[in-house]
């Protein structure tokens, strides 16, 4: 038995397990909703909720200090992808004002076993990732927009996730507390 166990690579199985579970969830959603846009929205929301929790784990794990500019934030996001999904996206395509950048993925673990049928061309399969970024950054007082520009599932060479800084959220302190 132990011989068998050593043959199964735990790390790989973990990521496959995640991929397959996520796939099962997306298919279930496609059955539940008639409209693909609703599925996108739902996936984004799930990502948002996950991001809000993951940021705490990320901060505890890395004890990262406060980011002073967007470039630092981008590095942190890159680091988070390496920790949680075991992929290293490349950061590029900075806008002139340095408030907008792209994360380029050569491989996307979530879409490892996925092929989109032609009638689902506007499904954003990995919408959970953009939701995650938005949720996580909102917890550190950064409001961002995040969306997919290119997607390997739709025949592009790379998966490109665009992140745009919107504004810094003010610390909301409940009335009566300093």
């Amino acid at each position: 038995m132990s011989r068998q166990a050593s043959r199964l690579d735990a790390k790989k199985v973990n990521s496959e397990f995640l991929t397959l579970t996520y796939g099962a969830l997306v298919t279930q959603m496609l059955r539940d909703f008639e409209n693909v846009d609703d599925v996108n929205k739902q996936l984004e929301r799930i990502g948002y909720n996950m991001g809000m929790r993951l940021i705490e784990d990320f901060l505890a794990r890395t004890s990262a200090p406060r980011c002073l500019e967007m470039r630092e934030t981008a590095d942190r996001i890159q680091q988070a992808f390496r920790i949680y999904l075991n992929v290293q996206p490349t950061i590029s395509n900075w806008s002139a004002a340095s408030d907008e950048f792209s994360l380029l993925f050569d491989t996307n673990p979530l879409t490892e076993f996925v092929e989109l049928p032609s009638d689902l061309s506007n499904l954003r399969y990995s919408a959970i990732l953009s939701g995650c970024i938005r949720g996580a950054l909102e917890m550190v007082q950064l409001e961002v927009q995040s969306w997919f520009v290119q997607d390997q599932l739709k025949g592009d060479n790379v998966t490109e996730l665009r992140v745009k800084f919107v504004r810094r959220l003010e610390e909301a302190i409940p009335a009566g507390e300093d």
């Binding site: 790390k11 397990f17 784990d57 075991n86």
Partner: peptide, 9 residues
């Protein structure tokens, strides 16, 4: 580190 992702999912 991947466990937490799955737990959240």
């Amino acid at each position: 580190s991947e466990e937490i992702v799955f737990d959240c999912l």
